[in-house]
C-alpha cells in the first residue's frame, strides 16, 4: 500500500513541483528582461492546450512510443529518487542506477526524434548527446567523489549521513570543489545558455522538438518539469544535505534551479566543440582536483 502511494505520489509531486520550477524559470527570465512575465497558471495552460490540440501529427509507431518511453523513464527516475517523507524504491536501486535510468528517457526521445525523419531533429540529438558526453564527465567525477566521501551509493544513506551531521557534513562543505564542478555540469544538464546547443532555435529550429506538435510537444513540456525537478533534487541530495522537510527541501531545489536561470540570460550560445572543450577543461578540472583531495583524505 505504502509502495503504491509512493509510485503514484512521487511522480505527481515531482510534476507539480516541476510546474512551479518552470513558472519560476520563466518569471525570473522575464524579470531579468524587465518584463512582467507569464501568469501563474501558464505552464498548465501550455500543457493542456497542447494536449487539447484537435489534430495530432505522428511520424510512425516509434514517434509515439518515444513519448511513452520519455514519460515512463522520468516517472521511474522519480520513484528511485528519495524526497522527504517518501523513500520510494531508493533502497532497491542506488545512485548509479538512478543516473542510468535518467538516460532512458533521453534515449527514448532520441529514437522518436530520429524516426521523424527531420535532419534538424537528428542534428539536435547529435548535439544533445555530444553535450551529454561533455557534461557527464564532470558530473561523473563529482558523483564518484561524493560516493567515495559518503562511502555508499544508497541515496537514502547519503541523505541520512548529511542530515545527522548537520550543515558541516553537507557535500558542499566537505567537498566544495566537487560541488562546484558538479554544479557547472548541472548547469549544462539544464540545457540553458550557453549550453543550449541542441535547442538552438535560430540554427536548427529547436532541434529535437522540430516535428513535435500537439500532445507530443505537451509531453516534452511535461518532461521539462520532470527534468528541472530531477536534476535539482539530485544535486540537493548529493551536496546540499537532502530535504529535512518539504519547505526547506523545495527552497533548496528552487535555489539550485534559480542560480542556473539567473546566470543563463547573460550568455550567448557556445559552439558544440566549445561546449565539449569547456566542460572537459574547467568543471572536470575542478572536480578532478576535488576528487584528488577526497582520495587523499
Amino acid at each position: 500500500m505504502r509502495l503504491l502511494a509512493d509510485i503514484v505520489l512521487m511522480p505527481l509531486i515531482a510534476f507539480i513541483t516541476g510546474l512551479f520550477l518552470v513558472l519560476m524559470y520563466r518569471r525570473v527570465r522575464a524579470k531579468i528582461e524587465r518584463r512582467v512575465g507569464p501568469p501563474f497558471f501558464q505552464p498548465v495552460y501550455d500543457i493542456v492546450k497542447l494536449f487539447a490540440k484537435k489534430t495530432q501529427i505522428s511520424h510512425g509507431v516509434m514517434h509515439d512510443l518515444s513519448i511513452v518511453l520519455l514519460l515512463g523513464g522520468y516517472i521511474t527516475a522519480e520513484i528511485f529518487l528519495p524526497v522527504p517523507g517518501f523513500k520510494g524504491l531508493a533502497e532497491e536501486g542506488d545512485l548509479l542506477t538512478l543516473i542510468y535510468i535518467m538516460m532512458v528517457p533521453m534515449l527514448g526521445l532520441a529514437l522518436g526524434v530520429g524516426s521523424c525523419a527531420n535532419p534538424n531533429g537528428s542534428i539536435g540529438i547529435s548535439r544533445a548527446l555530444t553535450a551529454m558526453l561533455a557534461y557527464d564527465v564532470p558530473l561523473a567525477v563529482a558523483i564518484i567523489g561524493a560516493t567515495m566521501t559518503y562511502g555508499t551509493t544508497n541515496l537514502v544513506e547519503i541523505v541520512r549521513i548529511q542530515q545527522e551531521g548537520g550543515m558541516a557534513t553537507w557535500g558542499i562543505a566537505t567537498m566544495p570543489l566537487l560541488a562546484i564542478g558538479g554544479y557547472l555540469a548541472v548547469h549544462g544538464m539544464f540545457g540553458k545558455e550557453p549550453f543550449e546547443i541542441y535547442i538552438a532555435p535560430a540554427e536548427i529550429a529547436t532541434g529535437p522538438m522540430v516535428e513535435m506538435s500537439g500532445k507530443y510537444m505537451g509531453a516534452l513540456f511535461i518532461m521539462q518539469c520532470f527534468q528541472l525537478y530531477t536534476i535539482g533534487v539530485l544535486y540537493v541530495t548529493l551536496f546540499l544535505g537532502g530535504g529535512e522537510n518539504w519547505p526547506l527541501f523545495l527552497i533548496k531545489v528552487a535555489a539550485v534551479v534559480f542560480i542556473s536561470v539567473a546566470v543563463t540570460n547573460v550568455y550567448g550560445r557556445y559552439r558544440t566543440d566549445k561546449v565539449v572543450r569547456w566542460m572537459w577543461k574547467w568543471p572536470t578540472g575542478i572536480a578532478l582536483l576535488g576528487l584528488a583531495l577526497v582520495m587523499a583524505k
Binding site: F51, A52, D64, I67, V68, L71, G72, I75, K215
Partner: peptide
C-alpha cells in the same frame, strides 16, 4: 509500470 503510466497519459489524453 511507469511506461504504462506514460502510455495512459499519451494514448488516452488528446485527440
Amino acid at each position: 509500470v511507469a511506461i504504462g503510466f506514460g502510455a495512459i497519459v499519451f494514448y488516452f489524453l488528446g485527440n
